[in-house]
């Protein structure tokens, strides 16, 4: 086995078939970029989940004068309601589940609102009285929110009990759909990349049928005949996956870390380490798909 010979043959094959090889590289590049994006989205969802789920609380909103009449017939809830809620939260039945809780009155709620909706037109129209007085309850285990919801829903003077995670879940399900979409597109494109590779390799074999014929006559082993073609596919696939890896790293570096992090400072985003962690997987997928497609194609073309 002479490696230099195999690589020379592969080089000749790639040069003769350059436009097809470039198209294979591009298709692999784009499809693996989608795969990488999906991977990044999943990591993003994961890191946001740990970040936000940790902060998420159960909010017990008390009635205001402007609450809907069907849930709050008596209007603004009285001080008694506050006392009832406080004592229930401190009762032995609920206390074991609760980490901390605090009460937020109209003015505090207004301050928080003004801060969160700064630059938003709605901040100008809201008055403190319109904002619910709220008990913010932080649970030891966020999964036990239903216990709080059950114990306070229906209590008079309480407008709503809301697990904040339900908002987050909507965001996460949207991100999940986006990453699913990226994965579906990636699968389709990887499939077309595999077809393109097998066509390219067969074309390459047809262009070199004279050499192949002679190699078979003089008794070159099948492996030796096939190897340059398989390597041709693998090299194209790996170049494509390296480009995809570069694109992923660039997106994380310039868009996520360079732009998103400044725009949304209180969110944890995927970092360069996450992007680099994806690289070996991308290269493996690109190389494997190309190798398998090339091998099966050249094997069908070159029966003894």
């Amino acid at each position: 086995m002479r490696a230099s010979f195999v690589f020379t043959e592969m080089g000749i094959a790639i040069r003769r078939n350059l436009s097809m090889v470039i198209s294979v590289i591009l298709v692999t590049f784009i499809s693996l970029t989608f795969v990488g994006t999906a991977g990044l989205l999943q990591q993003q969802i994961g890191s946001m989940k740990t970040y936000w789920y940790d902060k998420a609380q159960v909010a017990v909103y008390l009635c205001t004068a402007t609450s809907p009449k069907d849930v709050c017939p008596q209007g603004e809830s009285s001080k008694d309601v506050q006392k009832t809620v406080t004592s229930r939260l401190n009762s032995p039945t609920l206390k074991p589940y609760i980490d901390t809780f605090y009460f937020e009155n109209h003015d505090q709620a207004y301050k928080t609102f003004q801060k969160e909706f700064k630059n938003n037109a709605v901040a100008k129209y809201v008055t403190p009285a319109q904002l619910n007085e709220t008990f913010w309850v932080k649970l030891k285990d966020p999964n036990q929110a239903p216990i709080i919801i059950e114990s306070f829903s229906g209590l008079s003077g309480i407008e709503q009990v809301k697990d904040q995670r339900s908002y987050l879940d909507q965001i996460f399900s949207m991100l999940n759909i986006a990453s699913l979409a990226a994965i579906s597109i990636a699968t389709l494109m990887l499939f077309s990349a595999a077809l393109l590779i097998s066509t390219t390799i067969r074309l390459s074999a047809v262009m070199r049928r004279r050499e192949i014929g002679i190699m078979r006559l003089v008794g070159a082993s099948n492996f030796y005949i096939q190897l340059p073609f398989i390597l041709e596919g693998v090299v194209a696939g790996v170049i494509g996956s390296l480009l995809a890896g570069g694109a992923i790293v660039a997106v994380v570096n310039y868009f996520v870390q360079g732009y998103l992090v400044q725009q949304l400072p209180f969110t944890s985003f995927v970092g360069l380490a996450d992007a680099f962690a994806l690289l070996p997987g991308l290269i493996a997928i690109g190389g494997l798909i190309a190798g398998i497609a090339a091998a099966s194609s050249i094997r069908r073309y070159l029966r003894v």
């Binding site: 004279r210 014929g213 002679i214 078979r216 006559l217 003089v218 008794g219 070159a220 082993s221 099948n222 003894v304």
Partner: peptide
């Protein structure tokens, strides 16, 4: 099939069209 290449190494072949 996999032994065919080795077998062919003991044969020489020439054709009308040289190849």
């Amino acid at each position: 099939n996999r032994r065919v290449p080795h077998f062919r190494r003991n044969l020489g072949v020439v054709f009308q069209d040289f190849r």
